[in-house]
Write a protein that binds this DNA or RNA. Structure first.
Lengths: 119, 119
DNA sequence: CTTATATATTTAGATATGTCAATATAGTTT
DNA sequence: AAACTATATTGACATATCTAAATATATAAG
């Protein structure tokens, strides 16, 4: 899908325009390669909801994934277009002092995926 | 409302994340001070829908208005924070070649509000 | 003051979105 | 292969969003 036109740009904005997904984007920006388990642990939504958000972000071209055994590691899409990258950078600059975002980033640092999973 | 935190930023993104409102933002970016009539003429949605979108954009701090007789003129909010301004600039750079946006801007240039109104 | 006009608000209905429980799938371990 | 685990998908439901018709409000003009 062409993302540079009106519809595609709207899709990108919609993808970012949700509190949970925005938190996830900030998480992936600061911690590339986290798995669904870890994201779930930090964000606190159900696993299906996390997966569904990730799928939406992926279909907007903001996120990509790679399998690693049972885990699926997510990161910001490397081939994201420049404006989208810039916007995510701006959002991070804007939100890095937000209490919720700070808490999320603190949590992810303390997180060991081997300890977290099996649940 | 504080717009720099997570909730406020989400609100701004939601405001921009609609095809009609994004077109309206681009219109206001290029043509500050257009009235509801003119916006309606260009975008092609009903007057209540246009008004409702404008209210939402205003409540997100992206747009401001000034009365002029019967007309209400809208423009991008002068006191918008820097990141929001930057994002709108990026969106314009991205969308200025989009056919729909080009058509909108062409239409607004040909538009005379005195001719348009009375309907 | 009555009529007309531009915009806002209310109301209602259709569609989209966010969420989770249940289930399916795919890979790992024993 | 059987049991287990991480993730994806499906189904269902509640809420939010988009839209326009009808109505209200505010200003202007006659």
């Amino acid at each position: 899908m062409e993302m540079k036109d009106l519809k595609g740009t709207t899709k990108i904005l919609k993808a970012a325009a949700d509190e949970g997904r925005l938190r996830m984007l900030m998480l992936l920006h600061c911690r590339p390669g986290v798995c669904v388990c870890e994201i779930k642990k930090v964000i606190g939504l159900s696993q299906p909801t996390i997966s569904s958000h990730l799928r939406l972000l992926e279909s907007a071209g903001l996120v990509e994934s790679q399998k690693e055994g049972l885990w699926v590691n997510y990161r910001l899409a490397q081939d994201m277009d420049q404006e989208a990258k810039t916007i995510i950078g701006l959002l991070h600059a804007r939100l890095k002092e937000d209490p919720q975002i700070k808490e999320d980033l603190k949590k992810i640092q303390k997180t060991d995926r081997h300890a977290i999973c099996k649940r």
